[in-house]
Design a protein around this nucleic acid. Sequence first.
RNA 1: GUCCCCAUCGUCUAGCUUGGUCCAGGACACCGGCCUUUCACGCCGGCAACAGGGGUUCAAAUCCCCUUGGGGACGCCA
Length: 472
Amino acid sequence: MKTIITRFPPSPTGYLHVGGARTALFNWLYARHMKGKFILRIEDTDLERSTKASADAILESLEWLGIDWDEGPYFQSERFDIYKEYVQKLLDSGNAYYCTCTAEEIEEMRKKAMADGGKPKYNGKCRNKKLGKTGNAVVRFASTSAGTTVLKDVIKGNIQFKNTELDDFIIVRSDGVPTYNLAVVVDDITMGINTVIRGDDHVNNTPRQIQIYKALGVEPPAYGHVPMVLGNDRSRLSKRHGAMSVTAYRDMGYLPDALLNYLVRLGWSYGDQEFFLIDELIEKFTLDNIGRSAGIFDQEKLLSLNADHIKASRPNKLVKYWQPFLKERGLDTDDTLYLEKIIETLNTRSKTLIELTEGALFYFQDEISYEEKAAKKNFKPAALKPLKLLCAHIEAIEEFNEANLEDAFKKVMQSCEIKFGKIAQPLRVALTGKAVSPGIFEIMHVLGKDAVISRLKKAVIFMEASTPPLSA
RNA sequence: GUCCCCAUCGUCUAGCUUGGUCCAGGACACCGGCCUUUCACGCCGGCAACAGGGGUUCAAAUCCCCUUGGGGACGCCA
């Protein structure tokens, strides 16, 4: 059995967006599933628009996602000699020719073709002129207009194209730099790529590429065109759909595994299963479960999946993704054991790492500032006595454990003749400053005896200072 | 304009290959309820779809055709 070799070939003209990430993911998963190879190639033949910064950003995103590559990154801009060689072959075999038509002439041809009810095309004017290489001549591929080209797509099935639909497209620009259609084919041939999984938007390029393969006498790879990811208005994903870069999701507190999980399910399915860990995906991912229709990117579902992944992650694994968010707020992240304990109290109530951070703030503050609403509602005069009493009982505890703590509560409840709820909420505000938080026993356990007592005392002082003793 | 692709709840989808087990299943969102020291988690329940029209067939979400709708491509971008 042959080794499957896939690739991801982004062009460095911007950041890696979620659609591209999904394409990379499919190629990567398939390669991993088949125990094959995954190659990364930077398609920077467009010297004008390609930037080093974009290339770096893309690599960074892939690394964060955990999509690793076995070869590369190769840069097309460093492979011009190879392309030149192949172009010469095409020229020699009569499958390509020089063309000196001007932009105006070509514009005319296109208009005419449109007027005749067809696609805007180049009419092949220079094809038989046998022109030599001159100053600003381009090289065009002499495509066959007879017959049809069949694309055997592993996802969409057979697609037929009448060859008359194709024109003689440019394979080398006037400045000598090859264009996309030529470079992909040459790269895929020389890199041994045998499986090409890419976006739907490339379907119409495929017959051109297949023709180049034929002209070169090389067997084309297996193609699989995955449907596009659309924005909520059903149009192609773009900036106006909001945050679409991988790094934006990272910065919003999403876990890479959650993004990957969401992305893979957008277009691929495994029965009714929604939640996947990466290893599981590698084990279960195959091309035949990829759907044929385009999908809309749904942030809500991604959010929900992120919450699931936060819940399912081992705290010690989550720490490394969480630390940057803590650092951003100037919080100390050295005590990872403490962080893990905090996570355990908050992971079921945080949908993102930002929510986790916000929910955890009180753990890091020595001085709790009370939320006005929460204080008003729970720091009522009637709560003063129970809190004071509770403080005293807790201080008296020798071993700060659940049993003793429970005992302290019982005593307070009995002597004040109140229910647990009456003491729990004020205590919560005293400990966290908020009316919403993890369970108070969990919190006390993480905070420890000293912090609990100190926060209780401060709450008592606060209440005494701000509340006139209405009831005796 | 021309070519290509697609079409199941609002969204992602299962089911379609090998018609009947589907008056269509799961998930997100939404709405109820339970649990409960708050908020969540969790659990239970509800709302909600086979685009339309023709065929084929005893029988069609599943096969065929047309219409409509949506998307994509037509670059010296990739």
